[in-house]
């Protein structure tokens, strides 16, 4: 019974296809036939090939491990590079600060020395000894100053 139904169904399929696949479309038929034969051949070859699932898993595992290792190396490299750069910048800033401080202290010492020299010159220019003949005048000036302050 089932066989009969199938053959009826087959007829109806072929009837319907007859509209699209008439005799003049032999090339289409040939193409479809070759396509089926090609898929058959491919499928049979793949079904009977030796199984390489283990090798593939191993290869994929290796590939994944290599990927991870490379990723870790790149990550570690970028992190350590960043850290080194940060450390180098800090070191440079520290050296620059020390140099600036040294320069500033050198400048301050130089100024202090110049001021000392100047004061010494002024002292030597201003503090001349009064001649003996001018002693009375000098004492008068000192008395006038005392009166003014009273």
């Amino acid at each position: 019974m089932k066989h009969k139904n199938q053959s009826e169904s087959s007829e109806s399929s072929q009837e319907w296809e007859g509209k699209g696949l008439d005799a003049q479309e032999a090339e289409l038929r040939a193409s479809l036939g070759n396509f089926k034969a090609s898929v058959d051949a491919w499928s049979s070859a793949m079904m009977s090939r030796p199984r390489t699932a283990h090798e593939m898993v191993v290869r994929r595992t290796w590939r994944a491990a290599a990927g991870w290792a490379l990723g870790c190396v790149v990550f570690a490299g970028s992190v350590s590079g960043g850290m080194y750069e940060h450390y180098r910048e800090q070191e440079q800033a520290r050296v620059a600060a020390v140099r600036q401080a040294e320069q500033r202290s050198q400048l301050a010492a130089e100024r202090a020395r110049e001021e000392e020299d100047l004061l010494a010159k002024v002292d030597s220019a201003v503090s001349r000894q009064v001649p003996n003949a001018m002693e009375p005048l000098a004492s008068l000036m000192a008395e006038d100053e005392n009166d003014a302050t009273r």
Partner: peptide, 11 residues
């Protein structure tokens, strides 16, 4: 299904 597996339309 039709042209490789050659199933009928009902199938």
């Amino acid at each position: 299904l039709r042209y490789v597996e050659e199933l009928e339309l009902k199938e």
